Every structure is written in C-alpha cells, then in structure tokens.
Amino acid sequence: MDVGRYFRSAADALAAGLTPLRALLVAGVLGLAGACAPTLSVAGFEELPSEVDQHEILAVSARAPTGDATLYGRERAQSLTYGRHTVTIPPEREPGRIRYPRGTPDPMRHFTLAGAEMLDGREAFVGALDRELSQLDEDERILVIFVHGYNETFGSGLFRFAQMMHDFQIPGAPLYFAWASAGDPRFYAYDLDSVLISRDSFADTLRMASSAQTDRIMIIAHSMGSMLTLEALRDLSENGETDVLARIGQVALMSPDISVDVFRSQLDAIAAVSDIDFVVFTSTRDRALQASAALRGQTDRLGSMRSVEAVADLRLTVVDVSGFQTADPLRHSTLTMSPELIALFAGTRDFGVEPAQRAGAVRGPLSLTVNVVRQATEIILAPASAAAGAIEGTGARQ
C-alpha cells in the first residue's frame, strides 16, 4: 500500500473544499490508511557497542504508566510521573532519519530505548535536573524542553527528541514532556482533548523547570504540541507568574497546528507580561496542516500560512522552509527530517539564523531571504540551486 499516495490524495481533496461531513469522512479514510506511531519497549541490553551514541533524557509524563516494558500507553494519568531514559542512536545514518526496530532491536542499526528509571516524585526529578545541568559548561546550562505533536506514542516522541538533540547538536539538558496522544491518526479529536487536559500539567512542569539550576529554558514544540505550549504559557501569563516566564528565552514552534487567530490571542496575553522570543517554522506544502485547516473551514493554519502579513504586528520570527523535500509524505516534519536544514541549524543557539549581509545571499547549499514586515521578521530558506534565479537582485522588504 502506498501510504504516501493516500495521504496526498486525502489532503488534496480536503484542501479543494469538501463539505464538513465529507471532509470528516475523508479524514477517516486518511486515518485508516495512515500508520500508527510505533509502541516501543525498553530493550535492556547487557552491553552496548562503543560506537553507539547514548542520550540520557529526563521525562515528565501525563500518560498513565502501563506497568510493563512499554512504560506508557495512550491513557491519561491523574498525576504526573517522572523518569530518566536512555536512547541509543546508531553510528551510520542519514541526519533526520529514525530507523525503528521491528522485532529484535539492534543498536548498530536502530534507535533503541536502552534503559529507563522511574524517579520518585517532583523533588527527586528536580534534583536529577540539577545534576544534569551541573555537568554542563556554564554557558550551556540551558534546559531544553520538547513537547511532541499529534499521533505520537511515548517512545516515538522520545526518539524524535533524541534525534533532534543529536543532529542539531543542541546544547543543554533535555527534558521531554509526554502528553497522552493516542498514537493513532484516527484519533485526532482524542489528541486535541488530551492537549486541553494537559495544560495545567505542562504549566506545572514549567514551574518545576524554573526552580532548577538553569540559566535559561528553551521550549521546542511540534504540531499540536504547539497548542499545548501556548495554552500553558497563556495561563502562566494571566496568573501573573512572571518569575516562571522570565526563565524562558525562546519558544520554537515547528509546523504549529494552530489557527492564526487563536495564536494571536495567545501571544497577546503572553507578550503583555514577558519578552519570550518566538520562532515559527512554516511550510505552505505541509499536507497535514492543509487537511487540518480544511476540516475547520480555514485556508491556513499557523504552520502553513502563506503570508507573514497575518502576524506582521506581532514580535516574532517566521522561518519558511517550504522549499525543502523530506522523506515525510505529509511534509509535516520538514525541519527535523531535512539533512540540508539540519546542516544549517546544527550547533546554532536557539535555532538562530544570522542574517546574511544582503537578503537573498547564498549560504553554502542554501539561499536566505530576509523580509522585515512591521514587527515580524520573515526568513525564507530554499536550496540555492532551486532559488538562484528567483532571488537574483531581491532585497529585504521594509
């Protein structure tokens, strides 16, 4: 079965303007044709090859524990649980790609969950965070929090975070927040309910993170996880918890599945009491967001908006990565799966893109165009070979 073809045809049909009922029916077909996120188990290797990279990741979970080697399922928990997890990354792989084990995991070929340790409560978890941070150089004592998106299991989100920390060479201590996604594309509504239920839990996680011995917190959120992140930040803002917000330096929203209008209302509340730096990664070719928008009777979601004018009065940076291809048939994970983009951002602080001396300048294999539209900054990235003719003589629009 060509899953990519089913996704493409369903998203194209939705974007063409189906009635709400027919759109829901097509979405159901899309879900049935799509693959569920993999459920992963602790491998418990006796010994790991020296060539394998290991990443220790602390996690806060709003999922209910399963009591077995899979650790967590789709059910929502009544209270948060805490843990430390070891993810291994094979030595030879293309940046951006995750090879999941099918059957017996092989750390030389697959990402694996090599170990897991449950931590007994909030104080034990903050203590573990402080120990991780104390091992870093003073200028790298950053707490990096990842909030996964729709259709993720505990393990698939954990692996994606490990891949990002590894490939992008992100400095800091990683903290994974796992909300109760069903890990099944048929249950979009279940995931959305889980996001709403998890707002208080993530706000509490941010309070806990701000009490750790970190100089700064960075949040990376993907897809529907962006909605959860912004809702928690708005709650903190409306409660006047400026001490927590002051510790957050940047929020990077990757392919955010949010209405532009909802985002504007969230950012208005947050910006009124904080100076958080927001970076939004967008793609007009994101088929998952095209389908999400069509189901709601909209043209775009924030992560697929076609013009920065829609948010030009907000202080933020929009990075357009529409020009890049990845192995993802939905083009919903372009930033994290594109080897070219990984090469550009690897080792940068807070996914920063230093403007070239002139807009449209070529940076290695990529082109960079910078547009300043009132308060917003738009950065358009593209493979240089595809953009060379189009950008000749262009400059920043003021």
Rank of each mutant, 00 (worst) to 15 (best):
T66F: 02
A11M: 03
D130S: 11
T284M: 14
R331M: 06
D68E: 10
E92Q: 14
Q250P: 13
T104Q: 14
A10S: 10
A203E: 07
M165F: 09
P95K: 01
G249Y: 01
R216C: 03
G115F: 01
D184S: 11
W179T: 05
P20D: 06
D53N: 15
G395V: 04
G347V: 01
A124N: 14
F45P: 02
F202G: 08
I89M: 00
L289N: 02
A356C: 14
L58I: 03
M218W: 15
F146S: 08
P171L: 07
T377H: 05
V3P: 14
Y176S: 04
T39W: 11
F324S: 00
P107Q: 02
V244Y: 01
A64M: 15
I145C: 14
S210T: 09
V280K: 04
E392V: 12
P101C: 05
S223T: 05
I380Y: 09
A189Q: 15
V311S: 01
L330D: 09
S385L: 11
S210K: 07
G83A: 05
D68G: 11
Y82N: 03
S274L: 12
L233N: 05
T81F: 04
R99G: 10
D120A: 13
T70P: 04
R141F: 09
D120L: 11
Q135K: 15
A178Q: 09
M305T: 14
R22H: 07
I170N: 08
S255Y: 09
D235M: 15
A361G: 14
A69E: 14
G44P: 12
S292P: 06
L80I: 11
F159W: 04
T282V: 14
L58Y: 02
L192Y: 13
V319P: 01
P38A: 07
S41Q: 11
T334L: 10
Q54R: 12
V319E: 11
S201R: 04
L40Y: 04
T112Q: 10
L253R: 12
D68V: 01
G364H: 00
L71P: 00
L30N: 03
E231H: 14
A173F: 01
S134L: 10
S211F: 03
M224D: 04
V126F: 03
A43C: 02
R109I: 10
D2N: 15
V319C: 12
R102Y: 07
R109P: 03
A221Y: 02
L289Q: 13
D243V: 12
A272V: 08
E138H: 12
I220V: 15
L119P: 00
D320Y: 04
Q163F: 06
L341I: 01
I248C: 02
H166D: 03
